[in-house]
């Protein structure tokens, strides 16, 4: 076991999967010599050569469409969008083809590709470098959408994503890339896609979150225990689509009170789907309206104001208190 940042843990997953399977390829802008602008793909080119770790021309749709082709011929491309804000160029390829080729060919072909992209705010970046648009991808039938929250689960989920027979969009919360270290086992570890986890146990209220916001939620939970004596249960979704509605429904039935927290805009976000499932499956157990603590329905501002935009610890605490006071 070594203590790793999320960047190192993702790098470990890529390194080990490439060692294991010579069909695993890495491609994207600056992923080779430079090791990626966040160094996630550091040393891969030295180890596996430029044929498998490809610095591509600067064209996101090209990267996605080329990856689809590679996957059709039996490879397992892991392509990188340098920032999720540039992935919309690739959206068409993902929606029109990656998500549909299995169906269009009646199962004769499938597209086992992974599209990785750093997403989310909190690193004082330029415009187009901070948004959280996972809902676009989660809304597309035929795509899976995964968002890890710690180095260890990032590594394990990425290994699963690479081995998955279908296209997986893997959003990496860039605010967490180097935020903290965690023990990550050297030995192979996977986590099932489509399963969430209990990040913290509690009996009074359930907070459902994912990605970087999960850590604000965890901090808020500690404080609420200290200050109010409230025990907050925290669910970490890990996979946005297909959504695991079993675990959070079970939790909601126990606590009767739920808050959903994410940094993406509130309307039509992942939280809206979570709440819809709760209403469908656990309506009679709910003792208070489900509250959403989220980014606002505006374009995320430049970095002087991003901390006002992002749902931080205080806003989560307030949301939980209001839900408990109802």
């Amino acid at each position: 076991m070594a203590k790793m940042t999320m960047v190192q843990a993702i790098n470990l997953a890529l390194m080990q999967e490439m060692e294991k399977d010579d069909g695993v390829m890495v491609l994207g802008e600056d992923v080779g010599k430079d090791g990626g602008v966040f160094r996630v793909t550091d040393n891969l080119m030295d180890k596996f050569g430029p044929e498998r770790v490809m610095d591509t021309p600067l064209a996101e749709s090209g990267i996605a469409g080329f990856s689809i082709g590679m996957a059709l011929h039996g490879l397992k491309p892991v392509c990188e969008m340098q920032f999720s804000g540039f992935s919309y160029f690739a959206m068409h390829q993902l929606e029109a083809h990656a998500a549909r080729l299995r169906g269009r060919s009646l199962g004769r072909f499938h597209v086992p590709m992974v599209l990785r992209a750093p997403y989310g705010g909190g690193v004082r970046a330029l415009e187009h470098h901070s948004e959280s648009r996972e809902a676009y991808f989660a809304h597309t039938p035929g795509l899976k959408m995964v968002i890890p929250s710690t180095p260890r689960n990032a590594r394990a989920l990425l290994v699963s994503a690479i081995r998955d027979p279908d296209p997986v969009i893997f959003f990496e919360p860039k605010a967490l890339y180097r935020a903290f270290r965690e023990e990550v086992p050297e030995d192979e570890e996977t986590l099932p896609i489509g399963k969430s986890r209990i990040a913290r146990e509690g009996k009074d209220v359930t907070v459902i979150s994912y990605g970087a916001t999960l850590h604000s939620v965890m901090e808020a939970a500690e404080k609420l225990e200290e200050e109010d004596g409230v025990q907050v249960e925290v669910i970490d979704l890990l996979t946005i689509s297909p959504l695991d509605d079993e675990l959070f429904s079970e939790s909601a039935r126990r606590t009767g009170r739920v808050v959903v927290a994410h940094e993406a805009p509130r309307s039509f976000g992942a939280g809206a789907e979570v709440i819809a499932r709760l209403v469908e499956k656990s309506f009679l157990y709910l003792e208070a309206p489900v509250r959403r603590v989220t980014g606002f329905d505006i374009v995320i501002p430049l970095y002087q104001r991003e901390m006002d935009y992002l749902p931080g610890v205080n806003r989560v605490m307030q949301g939980v208190r209001e839900t408990l006071d109802f």
Partner: peptide, 19 residues
Amino acid sequence: PVGSQTLHAAGIAYAIRYR
């Protein structure tokens, strides 16, 4: 979707060359 499939041919051909 017009023209979109041309990228798949490029990617497939890369996989062919790699193998």
